[in-house]
Amino acid sequence: MSDFRATRRALGSLAGAAALAATIRPARAATKLRIGLLHTLSPAPLYLAMERGYFAAEGLEAEFRFFEAAQPIAAAAVAGDIDIGITALTGGFFALAGRGALKVIAGGLHEQKGYEGSAVLASPKAYEAGLTGIDKLGGRSFAITQFGSSFHYMLGRLAETAHFDLKSVTLRPVQEIGNMVAAVRSNQVDATIAIASMAKPLEAAGAAKIIGWVGDLVPYQITAVFAASRIISGRAQDVGAFARAYQRGVAEFRAAFLLPNPVETDRAIADIKKYVFTGDPDGARKIRGGVGWYDEGAGLDVADVTTQIRWFTEQGLVKVAVDPAEVIDTRFIPPLRQS
């Protein structure tokens, strides 16, 4: 063998080694996405998406940041502590969105006619005294978390549809949902709103009476997904990736709980139980009884969000001019088809 051949073989080995090395480079690093949410049952589709690896599959390293109330989630997005949030749309949210800091990109929980989402609860004493229907709320006292909250909005829209005077209702802001329920049970306020998983056990125990369901009178986009404006403009592909993962979670959530022939409900319950009702022996029943309605494809009910903006503005709860077109961005997830 001549030197030439030896060199060629050596070079060939080197080339081969290099080619091999090239294929063993590390996979592309996943981008971090911080998601803010309430630590309750309501964002269940997101729990499913996380447990089943849908975020990871889209190249996202999703991180949940839990909050105890809706308001701080919007503020956290503005301040840059989270990138995407899902929570109730409140007056405060629209005040921030109206200044351009946030945009709504998808739908979340939706109060639906015929689906037991949020109930109007009457205290035992008020019920005895004749508060037996939503139309009789005029002149009563009503517990809410705060002015401009989703509960305030629901009451306002109930007043419009059931024809009682909102101004005649004495509002009692009590900060926490727990306080709302406690106030009604102890007859300190006449009525309040509570989600099914809280309202039904209360009525069963005789501590309060359900006098109607919000969704029957006022279909309402109760929670929505929003993103900080800077994320939408600077990291649009990450938002798109999130949207796809989210939609998969919503689809499987609907399949497990909302469709006529549910599939894999137990597996969904097990995944959800890792985040809420963990270790609760009664957890499965509570989850079954308490899951809310998510629309197909998680489309946003744009008409309702527009109504919300109108109502908050009319009540003087949002002081800046808010253009619905500016605060809603439906390019990532198509909006709900209006029937």
Partner: peptide, 24 residues
Amino acid sequence: EMIGADRGIGSFVLAAGNLYDTDN
């Protein structure tokens, strides 16, 4: 005034904060 007050300077401040009505 955090609980059950629909009037009062304290409840006013809380409500304004909640609504991000920073002027008020």
